[in-house]
Amino acid sequence: MAPLLALENISKRFGAVVVADSVNLALAEGEALGIIGPNGAGKTTLFGIAAGTVAPDAGRVIFAGEDITRLPPERRCRKGIARSFQVPQPFSGMTVFENVVVAAAFAGGVREASVYDACADLLDRCGLADKANKRAGGLTLLDRKRLELARALATKPRVLLLDEVAGGLTEHECAALVTLIKDVRAGGVSIVWIEHVVHALLAAVDRLLVLHGGKFIAEGDPRSVIRSPQVAEIYMGIAADA
């Protein structure tokens, strides 16, 4: 079956730094994919390329059989690609509720009032119900990350790109997050999750990719990838807690 989202031979460099070197990635419909890799490996840049905020130097981005390489971010969002930002990018002057309402209304191309119920439920699911009427700019880092997730979900995506949403959570919160992500997936959303918190990733994804030096150097069953010698080599101690 053709993949839902595919990066084909994507290359990208910033000045002399090669961030992606003819990278290929295919996400099947309904799949949950994990990506790990050391700092600066180019993980976030790949999300930018998939979501349309970063233009690749070469290669194509395919979504649902269509070449979307030149499509602007808002069009990709409306087609069903949602992302969370690693460094949260809330609409700080707006309330938490408005943050999700604007995403739901514009990604869906629908009237504002028609998304209120769904947005309120979403805030509840993401643990932000009691902060709905707070200014987003006043949230703690943790709540900002929750808002990233809630806002991405508000766009009713077919593919959800999650960029390090588990960092800084307690054991209990992390388990709740994994449950939420599994729920979302059970609702038919395909997922790509970049995460340094490896145990959370292992609990939620079917396949794991390792990005290093602008290439995927390992891929496959999450547990065997984590134990592979390549990963041990790049990560040294980091993978040991898995």
Binding site: G52, T53, Q89, P90, V102, E112, T155
Partner: peptide, 24 residues
């Protein structure tokens, strides 16, 4: 209005606005 909501989002963060379906 609905467009005002989008405009306020643009005021706060253009990249996030684009990524959330707003034609900036």
């Amino acid at each position: 209005s609905r467009h005002g909501l989008a405009l306020t989002a643009i005021r706060d963060n253009e990249v996030a606005a684009q990524s959330n379906g707003i034609d900036v």
